[in-house]
């Protein structure tokens, strides 16, 4: 079975995405399936864990193991799974609201903990599933939502700086309009030993149609990754938010405690009996 070279389509499930036509998340799904094909990973050895939001629907559209978790809690679930099953390739996916607001604290500590998993955030600077409110990465002057008619008035969250200062050992940014470059980054992220964070600019064509203009704004300034955290910080000082490529790849040791003998499942269940 595994000797047969899989095609990316074999990593897609029969369920068709309900995303709005034109959504950048389609390209991210496609890049993930290409990546798994490229790395020759059998579906039974991969798990995709998500939170809540448009992009968090992604696990259902694949044939690998999936878990559609609670809002903002994808990373604790993914970390727990990886610690319990280090043999699995664990990917966590979600959006900017799920990852940087509701799950913001988990993001910081997942970077710090450096568990060997890959976190892919599809950032469209808006809460799409709840119909278009400002998210942590929304520009201060975006007036597209009636909830913030004068704009959120806050400086947007800067995910790469946060990841770098929190200790992530692999940090990259890609654009959904360049899915082949995204595939390259995802292959490198999965092959990296430690917590890898891939920030994907993924336009919301429904609530932020102006993001179609991102195609003209992205540029490849992070072409060569650095293993020097200071150098990475310096690069970020000049970052306009549209530089793509692998910014940082360090050699920090991943967190993977030695497995302890565990009790039978029934005994564990008994501890939680009410």
């Amino acid at each position: 079975m595994d000797a047969v070279v899989a095609k990316p389509q074999s990593f897609k499930s029969d369920l068709k995405p309900v995303w709005c036509p034109g959504c950048g998340d389609f390209a991210v799904l496609s890049a993930i399936t290409r990546t798994l094909t490229e790395l020759g990973l059998p579906p039974r050895e991969v798990a995709l864990i998500s939170g809540i939001g448009c992009s968090s629907r992604l696990p259902a559209y694949t044939s690998v193991y999936g878990f559609h978790g609670v809002h903002g809690r994808a990373l604790p679930l993914a970390s727990g799974l990886k610690l319990a099953r280090p043999d699995l390739t664990v990917l966590s996916v979600g959006g900017d609201g799920d990852g940087f607001s509701i799950g913001g604290n988990h993001f910081v500590h997942a970077c710090r903990r450096n568990v060997d998993l890959t976190y892919i955030v599809m950032d469209n600077s808006v809460y799409g599933m709840t119909k278009g409110q400002a998210s942590p990465t929304t520009e201060a002057d975006w007036t597209g939502s009636k909830l913030t008619p004068e704009g959120p008035g806050l400086a947007p969250f800067r995910p790469l700086e946060m990841a770098l200062s929190s200790g992530a050992s692999f940090i990259a940014r890609a654009f959904s309009g360049d899915p082949l470059e995204l595939t390259r980054q995802l292959c490198a992220a999965i092959e990296h030993r430690g917590f890898s964070f891939v920030h994907v600019l993924s336009p919301c064509v429904t609530y932020r149609p102006e993001q179609k203009g991102w195609r003209a704004r992205v540029h490849g300034s992070f072409e060569a990754p650095t293993a020097d955290r200071r150098e990475a910080f310096l690069r970020l000082l000049d970052d306009d938010g549209f530089a793509t490529g692998i910014l940082y790849q360090g050699r920090e040791t991943p967190f993977q405690p030695t497995a302890q003998a565990t009790a039978p499942v029934a005994a564990l269940g008994a501890q939680f009996a009410v």
Partner: peptide, 26 residues
């Protein structure tokens, strides 16, 4: 070739239609 090793004039193969040009009412 790895997917990103092909030598295309643009980010994607020339005949691949651009996703963001689709719309549910198109």
């Amino acid at each position: 070739f790895k997917p990103w090793e092909y030598k295309w004039p643009q980010a994607e193969p020339p005949e691949t239609p651009e996703l963001d040009a689709t719309h549910y009412l198109m």
